[in-house]
Amino acid sequence: MRERRRLWPYGFVLPAIVALAAAFVYPLIEVIRFSFYSGSLGNLIYVGTANYDGLWQDPVFVGSLLNNIKLLATVPIMTILALIIALVLNAQIRGWRQYRAIVFLPYILPATAIGLTFSFLLAENGVLNTQLRDWHLGFLAQDWLGSATHVVPTIGSVIIWQQLGFGVVVFAAALLAVPQELVEAARIDGATGWQIQWSILLPQIRRVIEFFMIVEAITVLSAIFTYVYVLTKGGPADSSSVMEYYIFNNGFDNGAIGLASAAVDVLLLLASVLIVTYLRLRARSADAGR
């Protein structure tokens, strides 16, 4: 009886451990092993670090990596935009609940459908350019998705469009939790609206801002495959490829499992820096008793 009592937690976590081992641990081990092999499934040949050398010599991989890094610029942009909007909502503006619901809506929508839609909105003769020409602003019209110089910022904008509401909601909730006395005390001391926002409210929600930025950095580094696949398929001429797309393309369309796996390992190395930062933030906020 006593024995059974102490053993029950193992029974309870066992199914989860088995599932995690199968879905995560085993594939992670395999993907590291594959990166030292070449050839196709069932016919793998050990090639040492040749795949890694191949990655750095492949301009498409280097370009994909650089695109991921460029897209990281969306993180501070969406953070600042979301903060401004959350501060406006926090002013107890009329209808703020409805606004919050509307702004959050894009975040729940499938990136596939969103990507399809934006591919029409942003096509060379698409809605945006037609509208610009109608307004005699034709000089602003660009081939948003078809030109190598514009395509990455365009993808970044679609990402911001979809992720912004997430930030707004997270920040608005954090602002709502700031003790009202703090704001009152500052007001009595003669602080103006902007001073209160900069020196009282923002420092109070610093943790949440850090969290948001880390989560979004992880997203932009490793969960934007759908946007690229639907909007550009990495084009024109690989100029909008990202690491995920490179992995997909080589692993499946080109059948280069080893090369794709080596790219996965580079991605994992970069992601692990962010994941460790995320875990640290979490541990710190747990220590702070929150």
Binding site: P27, V215, I247
Partner: peptide
């Protein structure tokens, strides 16, 4: 391993799914 189990779950929440797709496909 209680603490470790929980922390592993948190870390895996942030793992890039694309990292798993090639090996899981072969499985």
């Amino acid at each position: 391993g209680q603490r470790a189990f929980f922390n592993v779950n948190i870390a895996l929440m942030a793992l890039p799914p694309v990292a798993l797709v090639v090996p899981l496909f072969t499985v």
